[in-house]
Amino acid sequence: MSALTAPRALVAPRPTAVPRARRRTTRRLGPGRAIPGGAALGLLALLVVWSIGSATGLIDQRTLSAPWTVVTTTGELLEQGRLQENLAVSAQRAFLGLALGIVLGTLLALVSGLSRVGEALIDGPVQVKRAIPSLALLPLLILWLGIGETMKVVTILLGVFIPVYIHTHNGLRTIDSRYVELAETVGLSRWAFVRRIVLPGALPGFLLGLRFAVTGAWLSLVVVEQINGTAGIGYMMELARTYGQTEIIVVGLVLYGVLGFGSDALVRLVQRRALTWRRTLAD
């Protein structure tokens, strides 16, 4: 024992420093107390930097329009009705692709996760698809489906179903085998097992996949709308590029950002509501 040196504080406590009994209200190893409005803080900082840069002339108006220009341009586009019109077209595409992609991804994950045959047939092709960028697949899709709405929705779908599949499948496969044993002892039917154990057990994974999917849907949208389109936010930006209207491009960018951020926030809200039973580091 004598060879060990105890920390100094143990050997000789400083007589003057009487530790005040300060009660910790948060977990010592946790991330700390939740910051009110924390989600918007980083964005706000970015906006401040952008405004200062534009006001002082550090950012050239020709390369990046000032925030106030973006606001006035948005107003003008709204007056002309161009923004609403293009946004409606884009949103419809995104929602349709997203909805179909979620259904496809979930179904494939269930089949692949619950049966060996399903896994053998589905998992390989999905992993291969995952490695192929949507952009590279586009020429083929155009040949097959033309340049109409179908092609655009399918492209979004193909981008969306991958993260839903991967995370749902992973969530499903990592369900504790003890619960499977429990299901056997209480005599659950196959369907009841899926409904009571598999689906709720895979829900955290599914919701994580959904977060990737919603932002992914808007990303794929950019690709399809800028390559060939006659309407949509991407088309509006592409048109602005030909006329050198930086402010409209920035309006489009901001809109994409807001839409992506907004839909992610929505999914996170759903996540918090749906997973109230969980106790995690963030709580």
Partner: peptide, 16 residues
């Protein structure tokens, strides 16, 4: 106890 964490107590009792 092997309770399903995502099910409320009563739903755990009547499982299946």
């Amino acid at each position: 106890s092997r309770l399903l964490p995502w099910a409320r107590v009563l739903d755990n009792v009547t499982l299946g």
